[in-house]
């Protein structure tokens, strides 16, 4: 899910940026620093949308750098266990398939794909029901439920399932 939240960050600024454009410099450095980053707590920072306030700067001993506490609003993407969302399939193999929902990667193991869907290899590997009516392949859109998340320093990785009511393929690229 995407959220609009307020975060705080202490920005260190070199004295050469002081002057009339201090605020602009601070904001552009903030965007460069935080956009595209990911933390386990807040998820992926997609875009800074506004500045709430910039606190008083504090000169650091010995260096001349100044630290400003900056409160900013941003759009973040944070997946949650139990959340249901839509995703695009990016890769299919006999272990299961990978899908992407925005910046996050989700793996759906073949144990969590309905039992009536069989893996078919070939140049377009896919999972298909025995009657051929439903097919999951690259670029399919699926609705899945996140059942687990793993967080490391720069990425969040999810495990999902489509073995539940109202989950599975939304549309098939071949038929559209």
């Amino acid at each position: 899910m995407f959220f609009h939240i307020v975060l705080e960050r202490n920005m260190q600024l070199h004295p050469r940026y002081f002057g009339r454009n201090l605020r602009e410099n601070l904001v552009s450095k903030l965007m460069k620093d935080v956009e595209g980053t990911c933390s386990g707590r807040h998820g992926f920072v997609v875009a800074v949308t506004g500045i709430e306030n910039i606190g008083k700067g504090l000169i650091r001993d010995g260096t001349g750098f100044v630290t400003f506490p900056v409160k900013y609003q941003c759009v973040v993407f944070r997946p949650f266990k139990g959340e249901i969302l839509e995703a695009v399939v990016t890769m299919v193999n006999k272990m299961g398939f990978f899908a992407e929902a925005g910046p996050v990667q989700i793996f759906v193991s073949n144990h969590l794909i309905p039992d009536d869907m069989e893996f078919q290899s070939g140049d377009m590997p896919n999972y298909t029901t025995s009657d051929g009516s439903v097919k999951i392949q690259k670029d399919s859109e699926v609705r899945l439920k996140i059942i687990g998340t793993r967080v490391d320093a720069t990425e969040i990785f999810c495990i999902g399932t489509i073995k539940d009511d109202f989950l599975g393929v939304i549309n098939d690229p071949a038929t559209v």
């Binding site: 899910m1 995407f2 959220f3 609009h4 939240i5 266990k81 139990g82 998340t149």
Partner: peptide, 23 residues
């Protein structure tokens, strides 16, 4: 954490959520 029971942490429960179309 479990979104089905709305256990998403206080911070996010109070935050403004955005629909895909708004994003």
């Amino acid at each position: 954490e479990n979104a089905a029971e709305l256990k998403i942490g206080d911070e996010f429960l109070k935050a403004k959520c955005l629909m895909n179309c708004e994003v």
